[in-house]
């Protein structure tokens, strides 16, 4: 914390931003510490690399932010990401569908998965955990069925999403930024976004204030699905092929990013910027540990500890503020 304030002494605005946002402060500390510990960390190439590593998690996490703000949870995002990418590759390769149409179909798959989740939750009254856990199984299974278990090549045009612009700026980072801005605008400016906060804060009060809770949940989970589809397409583009086992376990990273970013799992709180910071913390940490040649086994331990610490610090800071 001391280090971060030294770096930013002249910028009081930045300081107040850090004070208000514990996770951002943690990210700054992490970046400063890693730059001191490894000369390779603070280079443009490496930082862009971190951005690419963060992109898929961040995009998934933006979608999860919507759901978590309504007080729900979406465990299916990783599987939906894989299924969407798989459908894109499969329709383009096997049925010869032009890539723009195939992309639209893939996004539609994400939306449909989200809608099914929402119908089960809002109208079937299933707990979100169970509904989306079921969807995780179904989507992952369908990805395997469609691909018969082996990777399918992505259409070349779509694979450019994994490239760089001018050999420099990675497209995934750009997509992440765009999706982040969309998430922030949805949350802050749209009816649905404001309704998400109200529903997560007090569903009954929201309903009695005329918010159509069921319909808003449909939109929320559909958004989560479409963000998952985008993440899946970006991931597959980087690998140049859609793989049925892609993004396995990413739903937990996404949830971790959202929570590290200051959202509450009980709903009503959360921000797109926080989620971005959360995803960056995870990516910076993995990248830094690699640079420091920490073994992959120990990395898992460190990341687990950091997740707990980040959320703990934030909780303590908020309690102190009351």
């Amino acid at each position: 914390m001391l280090v971060s304030t030294n770096v930013l002494t002249s910028r009081s605005a930045a300081r107040s931003l850090l004070a208000e946002n514990g996770s951002l402060a943690a990210l700054v500390v992490l970046v400063v510490a890693l730059s001191l510990m490894s000369g390779d960390f603070l280079t443009v190439t490496n930082l862009l690399n971190v951005g690419v590593q963060a992109a898929v998690t961040a995009i998934l996490a933006f979608g999860s932010t919507f759901v978590i703000i309504t007080g729900g949870i979406d465990l299916s995002v990783g599987a939906v990401a894989a299924l969407s990418a798989m459908v894109l590759a499969w329709t383009a390769a096997d049925t010869g569908l032009p890539w723009p149409l195939a992309t639209l179909v893939a996004l539609a798959v994400g939306v449909v998965c989200g809608l099914v989740n929402a119908v089960l939750i809002a109208y079937g009254k299933l707990p979100p955990f169970i509904a989306t856990l079921a969807m995780l199984g179904v989507a992952r299974g369908l990805a395997l069925v469609v691909s018969q278990g082996s990777p399918i090549e992505m259409p070349e045009e779509v694979s450019r999403l994994g490239d760089t612009i001018g050999g420099y700026l990675p497209v995934p980072v750009l997509v992440m930024a765009v999706m982040g801005v969309i998430a922030a605008v949805v949350l802050n400016r749209t009816y649905t976004g404001r309704a998400m906060y109200a529903i997560g804060g007090n569903e009954e009060a929201a309903r009695l204030s005329g918010i159509a809770v069921g319909k808003q949940k449909l939109i929320t989970y559909a958004l989560s699905g479409v963000f998952a589809a985008v993440a899946g397409i970006v991931l597959a583009s980087r690998l140049a092929s859609a793989q049925p086992q892609a993004a396995a376990g990413y739903e937990l990273d996404a949830i971790a990013a959202v929570v590290i970013g200051g959202a509450s799992l009980s709903g009503g709180k959360g921000r797109a910027l926080g989620t971005l910071v959360g995803a960056l913390i995870l990516a910076v940490l993995r990248n830094g540990l690699n640079l420091l040649s920490v073994s992959a086994f120990w990395q898992q331990v460190v990341i687990g500890v950091v997740i707990a610490l980040a959320v703990l610090l934030d909780t303590l800071r908020r309690r102190g503020g009351r």
Partner: peptide
């Protein structure tokens, strides 16, 4: 508390809950 208010949200947000749709 249970049905009238979103306790964790601020005053402006709560006051605007019913009119949210018309302000959209």
């Amino acid at each position: 508390k249970g049905q009238g208010l979103v306790l964790g949200a601020d005053i402006a947000e709560n006051l605007g809950l019913v009119t949210l749709r018309h302000a959209t």
